[in-house]
């Protein structure tokens, strides 16, 4: 079981990810609705994994990834992107994100990506 931080400016998306990962036995330790809050919540909870939306107010998801990696260079961040955001996804991966999931979320795909990143981390 992993401790997960869910960062997305839409409550809808946060709730959906929470339901998917909790059904898999993981624990959502905190939620964030913008990039600044994401970094703050990471600092407060040090989760095993962060799901990070790309388009968020105050501080973008990519910028928040950089902020989180400054705090902990081993942090596992999975980006949540929409179709058509390939350039931003590439930028996020270059910034240090481990993987990405594409909206609209397919539960099996979310679980597979989250578990793959967690497994790699535990090796």
């Amino acid at each position: 079981m992993a401790r997960i931080l869910v960062a997305d400016d839409a409550a809808f998306m946060r709730q959906m990810i929470r339901e998917i990962v909790e059904a898999e036995g993981h624990e959502v330790v905190a939620e964030a609705s913008d990039g600044v809050e994401a970094v703050d919540q990471f600092k407060a909870h040090h989760p095993d994994l962060v799901t990070m939306d790309i388009v968020m107010p105050r501080r973008s998801g990519i910028d928040a990834v950089k902020g989180i990696l400054e705090i902990d260079s081993t942090a596992c961040v999975v980006m949540c992107s929409a179709l058509g955001q390939e350039t931003l996804v590439t930028e996020a991966l270059q910034a240090g994100a481990r993987d990405f999931i594409v909206k609209p979320f397919k539960p099996d795909s979310v679980v597979k990506t989250v578990n793959k990143v967690l497994e790699k981390e535990s090796q």
Partner: peptide, 17 residues
């Protein structure tokens, strides 16, 4: 402009889901 962009983006994601 940023708010209009982000809100349209967010509605798109939810509606597609």
């Amino acid at each position: 402009i940023d708010v209009l962009f982000r809100m349209a983006h967010s509605i798109k994601g939810m509606a597609a889901s």
